[in-house]
């Protein structure tokens, strides 16, 4: 996983509340059983005028923020409350990542989406509505080591728990890290097997 330290980019506003993962990547845009090939379907119903078109290139809606010329190459998305609600599909994070978004700044996040971000090197930052609105179309620096977001002269601190912060900063693979604790897990399991035999379905 690519470590996340600091990032400076134009911040693109999609200032709506309750943007759900069906909107981020509709089910019909999840065309393969893998984690790739998703960027084209990102925000499809909003991004294209003819999202349902089956063949050939779809026509971008020039009004949609990510389609505006000043959004080109942007890596920061600004949005409202409860971003990423709905389906647990990690494809939402994979699609954002493949498109080039590395940080989402929202008023708040739905929990499964937020956890998926951490596992994929995408930084979720929660800030108040007015702060977010003021950053629209500005150049914004997100500094994870310092835990702040800077825009012009303004500096805004954001909160992130210690563990997700370390995972992102070091680009750690959670499974590799946890497997280092395997002896403790095995100990616990062999005790638990005696205490709650009904949990263990194999022999």
């Amino acid at each position: 996983m690519t470590p996340f330290t600091t990032l400076t980019s134009r911040a693109v506003p999609l200032l709506r509340d309750n943007v759900d993962t069906d909107a981020v990547i509709p089910s019909r845009e999840m065309k393969s059983t893998g984690r790739t090939g998703l960027a084209d379907g990102l925000f499809a119903p909003w991004r294209y005028l003819d999202a349902g078109r089956e063949h050939g290139a779809r026509a971008p809606d020039p009004e949609f923020p990510l389609n505006r010329p000043e959004a080109s190459g942007a890596q920061i998305l600004l949005t409202g409350a409860n971003f990423g609600c709905g389906s647990s599909r990690e494809h939402a994070v994979w699609a954002l990542g493949e498109y080039g978004i590395r940080c989402v700044i929202a008023q708040s996040f739905a929990p499964i989406f937020r956890a998926n971000c951490i596992r994929n090197g995408l930084l979720p930052v929660a800030l108040p509505e007015a702060v977010i609105a003021a950053m629209a179309w500005q150049d914004v620096t997100v500094d994870l080591p310092a835990q702040n977001v800077r825009c012009g002269a303004a500096i805004h601190r954001f909160e992130i728990e210690h563990e997700p912060r370390q995972m992102l900063l070091e680009g750690l693979d959670a499974i590799d890290l946890t497997l280092k604790s395997l002896p403790a897990i095995e100990d616990w399991t062999s005790n638990d097997r005696k205490a709650r035999p009904w949990v263990y379905l194999g022999v």
Binding site: E90, N116, N120, A174, I175, L179
Partner: peptide, 20 residues
């Protein structure tokens, strides 16, 4: 509770999840 695919892999590979 619901999780993402990476967390499902984590649970299957290690028997645990890392949680706050």
């Amino acid at each position: 509770w619901g999780i993402g695919s990476s967390e499902a892999e984590h649970a299957m590979a290690t028997g645990v999840l890392r949680l706050d």
